[in-house]
Structures are given as structure tokens and as C-alpha cells.
Design a protein around this nucleic acid. Structure first.
Lengths: 140, 140
DNA sequence: TAATCAATTGAGAATTTGTCTCAATTGATC
DNA sequence: GATCAATTGAGACAAATTCTCAATTGATTA
């Protein structure tokens, strides 16, 4: 909220609602789900406003879209890192915690003059279950 | 192409065209651009076939969708790693090379029984130019 | 507190993107 | 060359996203 105001944007009810919904713990919501939950908080919230707010919050580095499997975008808080193992066959996503990316941030910031706020590390391949059930694909 | 045949799929002109387009160096093309370029190679290529082929190639671990900035999916070769610095303000994407993710693969494979084929590491933040031109946003 | 004004909004139209259906075609095998 | 399941393209369809514009509202100033 402060980040919004500091950047010169108004604090409005629909913006409050969208922020509250997206920043709730553990949610990976798509724009439509965000619209519905925002309307539970502020009933007049419109679809276009949700899209506009998500774009704004993404620009400000507060939330971030992530894409997993064959589905459309889902939004999460941008802060910190996100680490996934993604199965190319069944689409299953497994989170893991320890990550060596933090150790790279300082050097990249120095080298590119880039101010890093968060990161995403994803490994793609075949999960244990699919390797058993569809060995002919995983073998190639 | 061999991976396709080995997995039991036919080699057809539109599939050839899509593969050729996506695997060309340095391209991050969206499905519509892929359709157009594939039609330049094989004019009869249809939209549905492009989507079907991209899904198939993704399943086989040959290509992969990536999502950057506010735009829709874009396809790249899956092989190996992709490393990006993504500016949340202007959307600029900078590639970098050295990456410590490889060192994690063996351990993750052992821990989760996962067969890793590729990875994506992205850092999000503000690029040097935007930090200068829009300091009030980057400062928050 | 009231007045002001640019920023923001919602509703729905319009566009874009992705999926599905099905008859016709084609690649691989023999 | 014959066979047949896999694949295809066209266009209908559905879903997701963006645009438009008059009405409203938040923040600032008086």
C-alpha cells in the first residue's frame, strides 16, 4: 500500500481488495478467481480493474504472474524466491526450499547495474510417477 | 525429429515447420508468430496444428513456453538452461550465462526421483536505465 | 469542510487467444 | 501400391484479455 502511494498512485477500494486477495498466504489465483474474491471484499470491483491492478502491481514489483503446466497465469507475491520442479508430462509442480540463487544476486547486481527484488528457479523434466507409467517417453 | 519418431509420432510437414521455427537461434516467438513463420515454410499450416504441435513438443521436453513481462507465452528450445534478468518496469530481458543451478540438479534428482532435463532461472527487478529514469518507483 | 481535477472506475463491446469437431488427407509399415 | 491409424485444416466455438467512455472518486488545496 505504501509502495503504491509513494509511487504516486491512488489507494482505491478495488485496489485494496486485489492486493489483499493476492497477498494472502499460499494462494496461486488466476485473474478470474482474483476477481471473484475481490468482489467478496468490494462488490463493485470490475474485471477490467482487476487486470489493470494486476498489471500495475506487477510493474511495481509487488506481485508476479507465474505459469505452470498448461494453464494460464496465476499471481503470487513477488517478494523473495520461488522454486519449482515441473513435470513436463503430468504438469505436477513440487516446491523445494533450499536454493543457491541468492548467492548470485550480488554479483549480477554489480555486473549489470540491476536492482534485484525476487527470483524464480524452475527445473523441468519427468516426475517419479511419470517415469514409471510412461517410460518410453522419459527414456528419449 | 528423432525424439518425435522414437516416441511414436509421425513426421509431418507442419511439424517440421514448427520445429524449425522454434529451434532457430535467439527467437522468443508467440504462437501467432510461430504460425506465420511456419506458414512461410509450409503454407497450409493451420492454427490448431501449431497449438497441438507446441503442446506435443512441450510434453516431449523439446521446447518450453516461457513468460516474460506482461506478455503471453513464448516458446524456446527446452534443452539446457535459460537465465534472464527481467525488468519489471520496461520488460527488458537480459541473458546471462554462468549459473549455479546445474550444481543443484543431482541432489534434486536424488531427493525427488525427478529426471531433470532443463531449467529456467529468472531474476526480477529494475534495470539500470529504469533506475535512472524512474527512481521514485525503484526506490520503494 | 468544501471545491477542484486528474486519476480511476465499471459495464459492456470488441478483440485476441486458444480449443474443439469432423471429414479429408497423409506418413509409416508392409 | 495398399492399408489404416494418426494427423490435418477450416471454421465454429469458447475463454481470456483489452478497450472505450461517461460517471465517480481520492488526494490536494483553499
Amino acid at each position: 500500500m505504501l509502495r503504491l502511494r509513494n509511487a504516486g498512485y491512488k489507494i482505491t477500494p478495488p485496489r485494496r481488495a486485489v492486493i489483499e486477495v493476492v497477498l494472502r498466504e499460499g494462494e496461486h489465483l488466476d485473474p478470474n478467481e482474483i476477481l471473484q474474491q475481490a468482489q467478496a471484499i468490494y462488490p463493485h470491483t470490475g474485471r477490467a480493474t482487476v487486470y489493470r491492478t494486476l498489471e500495475l502491481l506487477t510493474t511495481l514489483g509487488i506481485v508476479r504472474p507465474i505459469y505452470v503446466g498448461e494453464h494460464g497465469p496465476t499471481y503470487i507475491r513477488a517478494e523473495g524466491g520461488h522454486h519449482h520442479l515441473v513435470c513436463s508430462l503430468c504438469g505436477a509442480v513440487t516446491d523445494f526450499d533450499q536454493c543457491v540463487a541468492d548467492s548470485m544476486e550480488r554479483e549480477l547486481e554489480a555486473r549489470f547495474g540491476f536492482q534485484i527484488r525476487s527470483h524464480l528457479l524452475e527445473f523441468y523434466g519427468y516426475c517419479a510417477r511419470c517415469r514409471q507409467t510412461q517410460p518410453e517417453i522419459a527414456a528419449n
